[in-house]
Design a binder for these strands. Structure first.
Length: 481
DNA sequence: ATGTGC
């Protein structure tokens, strides 16, 4: 029977496939969605993948997806899989090819009016300053030894080398550094691909976007986050580039080869995993941490590039740019969660899913302790993005996780076919949004119709209590690969 | 996502 028709309604925003729907499921499969979102789910392999994930060794409580779910490599994108520490499975497919793909939000001291009539000019100025595109290198020359330091130190490297302010560090998830990173576990080829890509955006759905605060939903929290209506903000969405991609490829291959040794069987090779505490598991985890550090460093160097361009562009004005927060949405972390009343140490895979740690959590930075961590959710190109806050309910239900974006509803190819690029460009200009991109086909793939409605996705996680709406941002200028 | 594929 079709999986979708077997979904059991648990609440207005939560649906479940019980373990008996498919042989081998160890836990239920859960979908956070409204009725409207549900209509768009299941046209691809995402539900099949969700139930496959429920078969992972050591999977705890449930295999979970958010309303932005869509098909991914083995695991669905928009999902969370927590396995039992120390010997539950760790799977590169549960993290994705772009290790520590994530989003950073910068806040300015300028208002929308300060940009009036200069949107296109700003897009050009930023495009000139920030390298982008597939396979593109950047302007920073690293020696092999320095690259190893980036992999080990993350944003600490950026601070030591003048690309970061001390205040930035506290406003980055895990302070921009995972200390278990080990460059020895990273292949020479992966390093070669990463050595000249620090400070670059890449392509696909990666971007730098100048936006403004269009609406505030929670005045008190917005004030603590440093947000006010009309304020210019900047979103950075990118990850670990060729380096992370190569690490993912290297270890997916290794895990397929070593899985049998541990007696692990999974329904799809793309779910290949090994015990977290096995030699291969640890090698991957240390390598993944190195890629995560690279990605945080990448978003930090891009911040530095933007700060330089901003200073020049708004000469004579208050050009200070602060970091509101930086989140990873493709990563695995060892975390403690309460499951069935008991504290448990888990390996939490988030693939296209964002941490949403609530108020008072020890891992939430001091300045946001009272509000819960900032959660930054980018919408599709030309639509809104959201700033949310983590909740206690997310800690109870979804291992402290929420969605990561609008989520595709059309494949890249389908989008290319469906979108008339000239009309799309006209439409964006009509909305006063200036896009500067290296590839026109790349813009088509990212057209808003290729994505779900961000408003609906946000409403689901807000109503479900997994994150709280704080502010909405609207785009003004976008830089893409 | 990715110097875009077995």
């Amino acid at each position: 029977m079709e999986l979708k028709s077997q979904l059991v309604k648990k609440s207005d925003y939560l649906w479940e496939l019980p373990p008996h729907v498919k042989k081998g499921m160890r836990v239920p499969a859960q979908v956070y969605a409204s009725k409207k979102i549900l209509e768009e789910i299941g046209g691809d392999k995402s539900l099949e993948q969700l139930t496959n994930v429920a078969m992972l060794p050591g999977i705890t409580k449930a295999s979970i997806v958010m309303p932005d779910v869509h098909e991914g490599y083995g695991f669905p994108i928009g999902g969370i899989a927590a396995t039992a520490w120390p010997d539950g499975g760790i799977s590169p497919g549960g993290i994705g090819y772009d290790i520590n793909c994530g989003v950073r939000l910068l806040t300015s001291n300028l208002q929308k009016e300060d940009l009036k009539g200069r949107g296109e000019e700003l897009a050009k100025a930023l495009y000139a300053q920030i390298p982008s595109g597939v396979g593109k290198g950047g302007n920073i020359q690293l020696s092999e030894k320095e690259l190893d330091k980036v992999l080990t130190l993350g944003v600490q490297w950026a601070l030591k080398n003048g690309y970061a302010n001390k205040e930035d560090i506290d406003k980055i998830e895990s302070r921009g550094r995972l200390d278990n990173a080990d460059p020895v576990c990273v292949s020479e080829y992966a390093k070669k691909r990463g050595i000249d890509q620090l400070g670059t955006i890449g392509s696909g759905n990666h971007f730098v976007e100048v936006s403004y605060v269009d609406k505030i939903f929670d005045q008190e929290v917005a004030q603590i986050f440093g947000l006010r209506e009309g304020q210019l903000t900047i979103l950075i969405h990118t990850g670990s580039r060729g380096l992370g991609h190569q690490i993912a490829s290297d270890y997916m291959k290794l895990m397929v080869a070593s899985m049998g040794k541990y007696g692990i069987e999974v329904p799809d090779r793309e779910l290949a995993c090994v015990p977290f505490n096995s030699q291969e598991g640890q090698q991957y985890f240390k390598s993944m941490a190195a890629a995560a550090n690279y990605a945080w460093c990448n978003r930090q160097v891009i911040t530095w590039e933007i700060r330089n361009a901003w200073k020049e562009f708004f000469k004579g004005k208050d050009t200070k740019l602060g970091v509101l927060y930086d989140v990873a949405h493709n990563i695995a972390k060892v975390e403690e969660h309460v499951v069935e009343g008991k504290k448990k140490k888990l390996i939490v895979h988030r693939k296209g899913s964002t941490r949403s740690f609530g108020p008072g959590h020890p891992e939430v930075t001091e300045c946001y302790k009272s509000t819960g961590q900032p959660v930054i959710i980018p919408g599709s190109m030309g639509t809104a993005s959201y700033v949310m806050a983590g909740t206690a309910q997310a800690m109870d239900e979804s291992f402290g996780s929420t969605c990561h974006g609008a989520g595709r509803r059309m494949s890249r190819r389908a989008a290319q076919r469906a979108v008339n690029i000239h009309e799309l460009e006209k439409e964006l200009v009509g909305k006063n949004i200036f896009v500067r991109a290296g590839s026109r086909s790349g813009v088509s793939e990212e057209a808003p119709i290729a994505y779900k409605d961000i408003e609906e996705v946000i409403e689901v996680v807000h109503q479900a209590g997994l994150a709280k709406k704080i502010a909405r941002l609207r785009p003004l200028a976008v830089i893409k690969g």
